[in-house]
Amino acid sequence: MIRAVIVINDQGKPRLVKFYDYQPVEKQQEIIRNVYGVLCSRAENVSNFVQDSTFGPDTRLVYKTFATLYFIVIFDDSENELAILDLMQVFVETLDKCFSNVCELDIVFNFNKVHTILDEIILGGQVVEMSSSEVVKALDEISWLEKNPNSNVRVPKSISGWQGR
């Protein structure tokens, strides 16, 4: 299970904080500070994995740097570390498609949209969707609904089949 997804910038400012286990605010801030402390002292050219005991002995932390931002996922031993790296890639690609060339400011000013994107990818600590085009499609529908709150669904959903057959 994924325990937390955190985005912080290289100054240690939180940009997106999502815990899948409830944590009080103070604890959240402490975790963010600790994580930032670990990451900014890490050398370049090392692995993206950090042994992390924030949530118990078996939790691990994977991070990836994109421009000025650290994307951090904390998870337990039921997840595959390498797959989590791909998951982060999907998340960032989706952000990129939604904001066309995403940068830190997009995330700062649209943090609730970013939350919605994240909710389409991870639900309750489990992965919902790994296809960024599916996520973007769902988000388009949501944005349309935001603008036309009183109408119902715009187009009938086409049921996308198993592509690989």
């Binding site: 039921s78 595959n80 797959a83 791909d86 998951l87 890639q89 999907v90 992965v127 790994m130 296809s131 085009s133 599916e134 996308s160 592509q163 690989g164 057959r165």
Partner: peptide, 28 residues
């Protein structure tokens, strides 16, 4: 088996591998 032998599927493709996440969950 189908996922391993499936041809290229752009929608779920991650760097040339067809839906790795599904395969991983299946293996699990």
């Amino acid at each position: 088996k189908d996922a391993v032998n499936s041809p290229y599927a752009p929608e779920y493709d991650i760097s040339g591998i067809a839906d790795p996440f599904l395969q991983i969950k299946l293996l699990r």
